[in-house]
């Protein structure tokens, strides 16, 4: 069942048609990677889902309920982590989370337990230190804590990893992955490896519509060609091999790249047999996985 549905959503800023009839659905419990170039309209879409941005036309449904601009009713089901979360620097994390918890209607008794629990989850110290002195990474972690505080059914993260260093990014993605099954996660990014690492479902936003929306495996099957890369000792041998293998192979220096359809095992066996017959022994042989980057290039070109 889809927890979030967009139907023919349009949005225009001045002359620029940002969203041009965007429709998609996110199944409950999935991790949805929302991919697109900078300026493709990812943030706008997310803000519309949150009721922070007006919708020109079309409908957005959360669990069957229509989203209205400025309406906070459905927002209690959603946790939101903005790309650059901003806090009141004069508060400490506990005070800030208390304010958030009060606004979402968490009862007094639950709240302090829940806050300590969340601060432990995101690995922030429980003390009186004010947010003012926090690093970027700490603010991002506090952002997760505030977003998850009221156990939302949907977590929306806008470019959550773009400002973090590689270490912080890895930790952050692990944290998101650990929430799999507990809630539906929608996160936007232009870093495709992040999506490959944790998403079940990928949506590619381009030209104001969703050009692709499927699981990563299906996308790979659909868009990317399968390849085998063979590496040889010298250019000459490689040249010989590419002649033996025919049109489907191309040579690049010491490497031969072979495009194939169908089952890897059968293709690999016949290739190896042909090479053995000619006594041409590869230094290495790789089954090339199609990367999301290839798919992205193909979908958006």
């Amino acid at each position: 069942m889809a927890i979030l549905e967009l139907h023919d959503v349009k949005k225009r800023y001045g002359d620029k048609q940002v969203l041009n009839g965007l429709s998609f659905a996110v199944p409950e419990g999935s991790i949805f990677g929302f991919v697109g170039d900078n300026g493709a309209g990812k943030t706008t879409t997310m803000k519309m889902i949150l009721g922070l941005e007006t919708i020109d036309s079309g409908d957005i449904l959360i669990d069957g309920q229509k989203v209205h601009y400025g309406n906070s009713g459905v927002n209690r089901e959603i946790g939101y982590l903005p790309d650059v979360p901003e806090y009141y620097g004069y508060m400490n994390p506990t005070e800030y989370l208390t304010l958030c918890g009060q606004l979402t209607g968490i009862s007094k008794e639950d709240l302090s337990i829940r806050i300590n629990q969340m601060l432990k989850t995101v690995d922030l110290p429980i003390n009186k230190r004010r947010i003012h002195g926090f690093s970027r990474g700490m603010k991002q972690r506090l952002g997760i804590a505030q977003a998850l505080l009221n156990r939302p059914r949907i977590l929306i993260c806008d470019e959550p990893t773009s400002a973090l260093d590689p270490n912080g990014r890895g930790e952050f993605l692990d944290l998101l992955a650990s929430l799999r099954g507990e809630m539906t996660i929608i996160f936007s990014t232009h870093i495709l490896t992040d999506v490959e690492r944790i998403s079940d479902q990928v949506g590619i936003l381009h030209d104001g519509i969703l050009k692709a929306n499927d699981s990563l495996d299906n996308l790979k099957k659909k868009y990317a060609k399968s390849q085998i890369v063979l590496k040889f000792d010298s250019d000459e041998i490689a040249n010989q091999v590419s002649q033996i293998l025919g049109d489907s192979a191309t040579r690049k220096d010491k490497k031969v790249i072979l495009n194939y359809d169908g089952d890897y095992q059968a293709v690999a066996e016949s290739v190896l047999n042909m090479l053995l017959k000619s006594h041409l022994i590869p230094m290495s042989m790789d089954k090339q996985e199609a990367s999301l980057e290839d798919i992205f290039m193909e979908v958006t070109s």
């Binding site: 949150l50 009721g51 922070l52 400025g70 906070s72 009713g73 927002n75 209690r76 959603i78 939101y80 903005p82 650059v84 979360p85 901003e86 806090y87 009141y88 304010l99 958030c100 606004l103 979402t104 209607g105 505030q146 009221n150």
Partner: peptide, 15 residues
Amino acid sequence: AQGTLVNLVTKGLPR
């Protein structure tokens, strides 16, 4: 200007 209201408004704080 700072964007400090975004979090709270999405949590149900009416404007």
